Amino acid sequence: MVSDSYEVDVEKVASYEPDVISAASWNVTDEAVYEQLSDIAPVVVPKSESTKPDWDVSAQVVGEASGKKDEVLEAIAATKESMKSLGEELNQLDADFTTAINGASPASLDWLINDSGIEDVLEK
């Protein structure tokens, strides 16, 4: 729940009466915002040096916070296998084109790449 200026709308978050808040690390760089969110519900933030951690790191944090760690790890593995299969399929196409893949995390999958390199990217 962020505004156009990327500031957390604490009142809007509170209006949903969440049991837990999953926040991007760049949303809670301000200690005051973190404290306001913590007054609403426990706040979980991916542990990462990056302000935009990879999607699988974020998913693991949510899995741990929700008590569904095993299910999330299975979903991550299935998603990575699916992405690898897609990369293999795209590499087999006999075409001269560029592929854009827009993923859940700008840090992990927002790439504009040539078909000759997609498999390497999808294996990350």
Rank of each mutant, 00 (worst) to 15 (best):
E89V: 14
E31H: 01
D19K: 09
A24Q: 13
K47Y: 06
D110H: 02
D120Q: 15
S50K: 11
L37R: 01
A41D: 03
Q92D: 15
E88Q: 07
V43N: 02
E17F: 07
S22E: 13
P18M: 11
W111C: 06
V2I: 14
S48D: 10
W111S: 12
S38E: 10
A24M: 15
Q60W: 03
A59W: 00
S50A: 10
V45T: 07
V62M: 05
P106F: 04
D110V: 06
M1P: 12
D9R: 03
K80P: 03
I113M: 12
V61G: 00
S82G: 04
A41R: 02
P106D: 09
E7W: 11
G67M: 06
W111Q: 09
T51M: 14
T29V: 09
T51F: 02
G63L: 01
S3H: 10
D70L: 08
S38N: 08
D70H: 08
A23Q: 00
D56V: 06
D115I: 09
Q60R: 08
E74T: 12
A14D: 00
V61F: 03
N114P: 10
D39P: 04
N91M: 02
Y6S: 14
Q60Y: 09
D120E: 12
L37K: 02
A41G: 07
L86T: 11
D70N: 13
A100E: 08
F97G: 15
V44L: 03
V72C: 04
A24F: 01
D56Q: 15
Y16M: 12
V43K: 00
Y34P: 00
A78T: 06
G87I: 00
D9C: 07
Q36S: 07
T79D: 11
K124M: 06
T29S: 14
V2K: 08
A65I: 08
V45N: 03
L112W: 01
S25W: 01
V45G: 04
L93M: 08
K47W: 01
S25V: 04
E17S: 10
D110S: 14
S15A: 14
T99L: 07
S15W: 06
N102L: 12
P42M: 14
P42Y: 00
L90H: 10
S15G: 03
E119R: 05
A95C: 12
K84F: 08
D4A: 15
D9F: 05
S66C: 11
S108Y: 04
E11Y: 14
E31T: 04
K69D: 13
S116A: 13
D115G: 09
